[in-house]
Amino acid sequence: MIKVPHLMLEGLNLSLIRQDHPIINGVNLNVGNTGICGLVGANGSGKTTLISLMAGLITPDAGEVRMTGMGGMAPSPLRIGLMMQKPVIMRRSIYGNCDYVLAAQGVAAHERKARIEEGLALVNLYALRHQDARTLSSGEQQRMALARVLIADPGVLLCDEATSNLDPQSTRMIEAIVKSKAKDGLPVLWVTHNLAQLRRLASRVVFMDQGRVLAEQEISDFFEAPASKEARDYLYFESV
């Protein structure tokens, strides 16, 4: 339904310092269209901050974020789709939430309608489209957020623990849609603590600790031979 251009989001030597303490410390990260990239690490390791930097929500103190694949153009907020653990729910209907994003992009009204209906059908929310989005369950809200992101035709999708509060059914639905989009060539960065989910989705894993990237490996290599002691410890504590 949505055409996905082949783009790559690059974070180059990103640093963020707060109260003389490096939150993100010289991180390089590529999110390309070679399968889903999993981002893992303990609480406070800087995953959410990194994803916020990549999405443009926070400006780095050093380094830059750029999107390549279309003539090395500068990152445009409109081309990055972000799914957060707690999605932004506007005080509108489901349809109104989706329509707002497309209207902000300047999409014509007739095209908006078609895209929204297609997007809501994809996440199985079409029947509820006129319902106030605030009255939805967590799972439905997250599915609406996914539809809202996808209909905006993102060049890259960043998901920050997008399914951490959801039931297995909603989780699997979101996973299936994201996996399918990644298969179609949409670059995806997926932050999670769920190792089983990481195995199901990711083809590549980036491990963070104390604001630094300590391991970047293929998924099988990461589980069999983690590239750092911290990653080994993390896997041990997450699996016991």
Partner: peptide, 13 residues
């Protein structure tokens, strides 16, 4: 409300 909406506003520029 702005605190809730801000990420969306930034993403949409």
């Amino acid at each position: 409300m702005h605190a809730d909406y801000q990420p969306l506003f930034i993403m949409l520029g």
